[in-house]
Design a binder for these strands. Structure first.
Lengths: 228, 228
DNA sequence: GTCTATAAGGTGATAGAC
DNA sequence: GTCTATCACCTTATAGAC
């Protein structure tokens, strides 16, 4: 994958850094809302408080800007995906997995929607990533889940469908936010709501997959999957 | 307006009906892929095998065409949403719910993605529907779920989060099809795959929410299969 | 570095020929 | 009923003034 130059080094002045940040934030919103084609550089520029040409000057092209946003989102994603091993406790790993995904929906809803929009459109820019890097990640987790099942630590569910279940049910609160708010009649979901939902999803997944709790072991501090 | 009336007194002749069908099918694909703004009437016309002006002649405007597609999808949705009562068996109702949603993803993937795209963009055309009709539907189901919980037929989970869980995890296979195929390395999901996924989701939800099986099992505590 | 002006082409919609 | 020609506008991108 292409590296991400975080734009903060070298010749980037304070102005450039500030403008780029504003453009990226605005672009994430606009692309998330209208998709790649539906988004216009003009609208991005307006939301960033800059003239249109400035956006193209900094980012090169609409396409490059879009790819850069996708890569930034993939980096956030990767930063979250720690390694696990068959020696870890299934309940803890699954719980941390769900929690970190919910946190991702909470902290980067526009990024999540940008990603969703890209997938919805057939993933023209991400097909390589999906069938390469991400597929490998899923397969390695699946192998661990299968070993847990063999050891009788959980039911022999298909690990891939389980991963999709966790992804979809957590991303839902970012991607379908408009629906969630409309149906619940809320203006926004509170931290407390999110906590309740996280607990609900964790319980359903762990209980639903027959995950055994380690008999004599208190839940140890396992913070590698959770942010902060 | 002189109308050539050939063999059909209904609104629109055979040609019109055929063309409208082609336009609706093409438009659903294009809107699903690129969103409302990103879709062009030109592309819809090409995929329908008609000149651009013809699409606008039949449908009035891009906007009307889009709204018509959303309404058609809502109709399909409504046709699926049977009434339930607290007297029904929870396991059966939840199982049927999941199965019908999976079938919806299977039969109308473009419609599902069109809907998803609309929600992703903030649901500008559907806000009324979400906070009105659909909200009422959810609330009435939620009331039934709560009564089941009070009767001890299932765990006291929040019904709304449960409905979102079922929606998200089933729609995932239509909306994120590109991701699912990329990761699984398949060309398409087979009927058998869908059946397995349906069974998996059903099991996780029913077991995860502690839904009791009606006739076969006495309500006494059986801790051999589920904890607590 | 920053922004105005403009190029080259696509957009939704419509008028009017057939 | 059907389709070609056209409208005014908006799109991305660039050239060049300050």
């Amino acid at each position: 994958m292409a590296k991400i130059d975080s734009s903060s080094e070298q010749e980037g002045g304070a102005i450039r850094r500030r403008n780029e940040r504003a453009i990226l934030a605005a672009a994430e919103r606009v692309f998330a809302r209208h998709g790649y084609r539906g988004a216009s550089v003009q609208e991005i520029a307006e939301q960033a408080g800059l003239p249109k040409s400035n956006v193209l000057y900094y980012m090169g092209s609409k396409r490059k800007l879009y790819v850069r946003l996708l890569e930034r989102m993939m980096e956030r994603w990767n930063a979250m995906l720690d390694d696990i091993s068959a020696e870890d406790d299934p309940a803890e790993v699954l719980s941390a997995f769900i929690r970190s995904k919910m946190l991702m929906s909470r902290r980067h809803p526009e990024g999540s929607r940008l990603f969703a929009s890209e997938i919805l459109g057939g993933a023209p820019f991400l097909q390589e990533y999906l069938s390469g890097e991400l597929r490998d990640w899923v397969q390695s987790r699946a192998a661990v889940f299968r070993e847990w099942a063999e050891r009788g630590l959980m039911d022999p569910v298909d690990p891939v469908w389980l991963i999709f279940l966790i992804w979809s049910s957590t991303q839902h609160y970012a991607d379908f936010e408009a629906q969630v708010l409309g149906i619940t009649g809320r203006e926004a979901l509170s931290d407390e709501d999110l906590e309740r939902i996280t607990e609900f999803l964790t319980q359903v997944v762990i209980k639903g997959c027959g995950v055994k709790h380690p008999a004599a072991q208190a839940p140890s501090e396992r913070t590698s999957l959770t942010e902060r």
